[in-house]
């Protein structure tokens, strides 16, 4: 069983990512045959209009979907493992709101224009949001239970959301470009921000894979982890940094995309069991495929109009959340 899974699983995941990747590029306002898509990737022809569209618009978007999907799913899986909370997720626990608030404040309010600083600002915001939510939840009588975490996450998100709206109202012109970004979208994002975020994505994913073994131990309970020689405090800090890094880079590229980090780890655990050495890479792969599918749907469902990707992730993720509440609590 394990052997078959280790052989077959990665091939299936990578294969489906490749197929979805090509399909994602083919779909759009003008649908392009898959063959042309493949051709443009291997034999790029500057004079072909379709090739230029693919290279400049569609290929970046597909790459964004893959990296952001993988990062958010991995961040969610680490959070769920370390906190042993089935409802942990960057969006529900205030990280996305904190990061978006910080970016909006820095870009819109203080006129930050250097793309290299955006992930830094987002990381500071995500860290602030996470710490705030955690502090409130830990002080609630009964401690940081799933309920108190979700409630304090909802409160912090509502507060930061109101502040963002307030800033938008005070200077509508500057914020026009941020308005769409705030609903979570992969459309029209600039490549230079992504280039600056790439080291963050790679670093975060490497850390995630490196700590996966210890997270498995911690997910079995703190006593077990201590018995297996895990330095819990150190591990928690590393995971927090890793989650913040991954979330910040995702927000900088695509805005707040909720529920991706909630849905994927649960699906992955159903498939591969409870070993985080498998959960982390599979979450990355399936998360990437999931966001590709979601982004295809966002462009197909109401074609020729396009919905924000964040709306689709919420439409799919929120019922899943309700289902989790019913079955896991």
């Amino acid at each position: 069983m394990t052997l078959r899974l280790t052989m077959l699983g990665p091939i299936m995941v990578i294969g489906s990512i490749l197929v979805l990747f090509l399909w994602h590029i083919a779909v759009g306002a003008k649908s392009i045959p898959i063959l042309t898509v493949a051709e443009s990737l291997w034999h790029f022809d500057r004079t072909e209009f379709d090739h230029v569209v693919i290279r400049n618009l569609r290929l970046p978007r597909a790459i964004f979907a893959v990296t952001v999907g993988a990062s958010l799913a991995v961040a969610g899986s680490l959070m769920q493992g370390v906190t042993r909370n089935p409802l942990a997720e960057p969006g529900l626990l205030g990280l996305l709101a904190g990061a978006s608030f910080a970016v909006v404040a820095a870009v819109g309010f203080f006129g930050l224009a250097t793309p290299g600083w955006i992930p830094v600002v987002a990381a500071a915001g995500a860290l602030g949001g996470a710490v705030l939510v955690w502090t409130i939840a830990a002080r609630v009588p009964g401690g940081a239970t799933p309920l108190s975490l979700i409630l304090s996450g909802a409160a912090v998100t509502a507060f930061l959301g109101a502040l963002i709206t307030l800033m938008q109202l005070m200077d509508e012109q500057t914020f026009e470009s941020l308005r769409v970004w705030l609903t979570g979208t992969l459309a029209g994002r600039r490549m230079e921000v992504f280039v600056w975020c790439l080291p963050w994505f790679i670093g975060g994913l490497i850390i995630a894979i490196a700590v996966a073994r210890q997270v498995t131990a911690l997910a079995m309970g703190e006593e077990t982890a201590i018995g297996l020689g895990v330095d819990i405090a150190r591990l928690k800090i590393i995971v927090l940094i890793c989650v913040v890094v991954l979330t910040a880079a995702s927000v900088a590229v695509a805005g707040p995309l909720g529920f991706v980090g909630l849905v994927i780890p649960h699906v992955v655990r159903l498939l591969v069991g409870s070993d985080y050495r498998l959960i982390v890479p599979y979450s990355a792969g399936i998360g990437a495929a999931y966001l590709l599918v979601v982004d295809i749907a966002a462009r197909l469902v109401l074609a020729p109009a396009e919905i924000s990707t964040g709306i689709v992730t919420a439409l799919l993720g929120a019922p899943f959340f309700v289902w989790l509440v019913r079955t896991r609590l």
């Binding site: 799933p146 979700i150 909720g258 919420a314 993720g317 309700v322 509440v325």
Partner: peptide, 14 residues
């Protein structure tokens, strides 16, 4: 409450 929060997110997205 938790169900309500989930449903609220879903409806806002709609």
């Amino acid at each position: 409450i938790l169900t309500g929060i989930g449903i609220a997110a879903f409806i806002s997205a709609m």
